[in-house]
Computed example of a mutant assay.
Amino acid sequence: MDLRYFDVVDATWPPYAITRTGPWLIREGRGGGKRVSAASAADIAKANDIPQAIEAMRALGQQNLFMLRPVDNELDQALADRGYEIVDPVHIYTCDPTQVGAGDIPAVTCFETETPLAIMQEIWAEGGIGPNRLAVMARAKGPKTYLLGRTQDRAAGTALVAIHDGVAMLHALEVLETFRGKGLGRYLMRAAARWAARHGAAELALLVTRKNAPANALYASLGMSVVGSYHYRIKENAE
Rank of each mutant, 00 (worst) to 15 (best):
M1Q: 06
L3F: 13
L3Q: 14
R4M: 13
F6L: 11
D7V: 05
V8K: 02
A11H: 11
I18E: 05
I18K: 06
I18R: 13
T21N: 04
G22A: 11
L25G: 06
R27L: 06
G33N: 01
S40E: 01
A42C: 12
A42T: 05
A42P: 03
A47K: 00
A47N: 02
N48G: 15
D49N: 11
Q52I: 01
Q52R: 05
I54E: 02
R58E: 09
L60A: 07
L60K: 02
Q62D: 08
L65V: 05
F66V: 00
M67A: 08
L68V: 06
L68S: 06
N73G: 08
L75H: 04
L75K: 00
Q77L: 12
L79A: 06
L79D: 00
E85T: 12
D88P: 00
V90C: 13
H91P: 02
I92L: 14
T94P: 04
T94V: 14
D96C: 03
T98F: 13
T98S: 15
G101M: 03
A102E: 13
D104P: 09
I105Q: 05
I105S: 07
T109G: 07
C110Y: 03
E114M: 03
L117R: 15
A118H: 15
I119E: 02
I123T: 12
G128C: 14
G130C: 08
L134N: 00
A135N: 15
V136E: 04
V136A: 11
M137R: 08
K141P: 10
K144Q: 15
L147P: 12
R150D: 00
R154W: 07
A155K: 12
A156F: 06
A156N: 00
G157T: 04
L160T: 00
L160V: 12
A162N: 04
H164T: 04
D165Q: 13
M169S: 08
L170Y: 05
L173T: 02
V175L: 04
E177A: 11
K182S: 10
M189E: 00
M189Y: 09
R190M: 04
A193Q: 07
W195K: 02
A197L: 08
R198L: 15
G200F: 15
L204G: 05
V208F: 04
V208W: 10
R210V: 14
K211R: 15
N212F: 05
N212Q: 01
N212D: 07
A213W: 13
A215W: 08
Y219I: 13
L222C: 03
G223M: 10
S225L: 08
G228F: 06
S229Y: 09
Y230I: 03
R233I: 05
R233Y: 11
